[in-house]
Design a protein around this nucleic acid. Structure first.
Lengths: 336, 336
DNA sequence: GACAATTTTGTAATCGATTACAATCCGGTT
DNA sequence: AACCGGATTGTAATCGATTACAAAATTGTC
């Protein structure tokens, strides 16, 4: 393996000079620079990053922690991460927790061992305090989930408002019995969207009924199964709001299977606006999040923190948007 | 930051001993081991991996190169990669090429700079020779794409046979005019599936017609658009085989939009068997690949190569399976 | 041409864990 | 008690690039 000393020897300079040419580039006469560069090319010298990393105390690598890469929502975020990272010469380590709390915690240790310089959490199952503690010791940015009252660097949408707006849309269409299929209630994001649901009902003076709120786990089948429960009620909802698109599609399956129609009998709204929305029939109305952008901005923020730059803002709320498609319509005339 | 010397001091041993306790664990008396471990815990010592990496000349990290993480097929493979890697204490760097040849090449350099110990390519746009050259210098495993006649470590399915079987299924149902929507023809995988198409037609003495073969780019819209072209033929096909599910779904959209029915008017088969297949209507018949398993085995192979273990086989062909669903049926009675 | 100011280059310490090699310890044997 | 062999521990070199500091070279000024 050819090292920096070989280059130095060939160019008849010291290793310091070679290093200078290859990094800062300042304070080297163009004559010697050329000589060094020629040697570098001739020997096909590639600096050993392991050595460089040790000396600089940085791995130039960050970790992206997501609950499940297989989910198109998160894979888009990842892409945002990667593009910024690349731009600044950083690499992205893949951290898929498979929704395990343990693994989430393990990843925090990687920073302490200097395997990575920082962390982006696109999932937050860990207790707030633990995350807060970590964020004070090491560079961490939270993507997707906003933690009320904690000053942790965050990029997210306003999930409460997004939830409220989705439900208000249904109310505006005349619906009064509105079912909600939520994700696991131990993740903040789910709680926030339920909060939005409450707000919408309260604003419109519609009484809240516990049975109309069902907990799923973000999977298609959980959407299917919880929808069956809602349909089994003596007085089933005329509209359903699911906190992600997969569950919404599962719900649609259940509705159709019971011989009912979407949206004529029951309206459905999803969340995330993944490509799937345009592929099912009828096409699914959904709340769109700027997922790529969230990833992009979160990584920008993380790298700023790593470089100890001053942050203008350390909490960014991005806009969401209700994408109207074909799964919502006026409430069927009530048969009083 | 607490280092190994601090631990050594506290435990009143040398750094060598501390290191021994933390790694090999052999040849250390239990008395001193306990003492060291106590110090490690008390000081919350975390070894600095950067130093360790330099000394051991290994980053304990590998890179997974995929064309597009957003594609559920590749994200599943990634998960397979990650699970094996984790098991052996390795990390996975995310390499998304966005189908760019340049980036694919850049990633090879990362090994030379020792940023990663090895590479898994789940895409192979680079010329065969270049990949072969790389594989002789550094640990590389090819996932998904099998290169004829080159002895490069590979995990894949038999794309030729898979393509042939899909088309034969259509022929068995009575179809004789069978359209093919293929992925970009510069990737081996596409070529192989087309080869299978040819074989099936030849075996059944059906003449091959160039216009029936259309090139897409794996996207839904490309499937939609190429299907429109097929439908515009004077004598359109009664069945279509797409080399991935997204294009198949795009084709279904086009068919329905023209007022035709799937499968009654036109049968459709996709490839990959991603979850989407079960969500569209009618549910899509597709060739299933063991994607997680491919990732899993490819990573096992790569780690073996890195550790310079003897490989029993360095080319693995995994089984595929035609998943019958609702998009194929007998050819509509020909109106002669 | 002498001297100061500045630029360019070199020397050697440094990052922190690992490990080859040397030293020491300990129990058993004669 | 002397000695041996194996187990345990310590010393110091090592990985290869970076960089603080020192030295040398160059430029400019009078």
């Amino acid at each position: 393996m050819v090292g920096i000393v070989d280059v130095a020897k060939m160019a008849k300079v010291s290793t310091a000079t070679v290093s200078r040419v290859l990094s800062n580039n300042m304070n080297v006469s163009s004559k010697t620079r050329d000589r060094v560069l020629k040697a570098v090319n001739q020997l096909e010298y590639k600096p050993n990053r392991l050595a460089s990393n040790l000396r600089k105390m940085s791995s130039k690598t960050v970790m992206a922690v997501v609950p499940d890469i297989t989910n198109p929502f998160f894979s888009s975020i990842l892409q945002g991460f990667k593009d910024v990272a690349l731009e600044f010469g950083y690499h992205v380590l893949l951290g898929d927790t498979g929704n395990s709390l343990e693994q989430e915690r393990d990843y925090i240790n990687l920073v302490k061992e200097r395997v990575v310089d920082g962390l982006i959490l696109a999932t937050a199952r860990l207790p707030k305090e633990e995350i807060l503690a970590a964020s004070q010791e090491i560079p961490v940015v939270l993507a997707c989930e906003y933690m009320d009252g904690f000053d942790i660097p965050t990029v997210s949408i306003d999930n409460v408002s997004a939830g409220r707006e989705a439900v208000e849309h249904l109310i505006r269409l005349g619906h009064r019995r509105i079912g909600m299929i939520t994700g696991p209630l131990d993740v903040i994001l789910s709680k926030d969207r339920v909060k939005g649901y409450y707000q919408a009902l309260n604003l419109n003076e519609i009484p809240i009924e516990g049975v109309l709120i069902q907990e799923g786990n973000f999977s298609v089948t959980s959407g299917y199964e919880t929808m069956l429960k809602l349909l089994a009620l003596k007085d089933p909802p005329t509209a359903v709001f699911a906190t992600n698109d997969e569950m919404a599609v599962g719900a649609m399956k259940a509705i159709k299977q019971r011989g009912l129609q979407v949206p004529n009998d029951i309206s459905v709204i999803g969340f995330d606006d993944i490509p799937l929305c345009g592929l099912v029939e009828p096409e699914l109305t959904s709340v769109s999040q700027p997922r790529y952008d969230m990833g992009y901005q979160a990584m920008q923020m993380l790298l700023s923190i790593i470089k100890k730059e001053e942050l203008t803002r350390n909490q960014i709320v991005l806009p969401h948007r209700l994408m109207l498609r074909d799964t919502c319509c006026k409430r069927p005339s009530p048969m009083l």
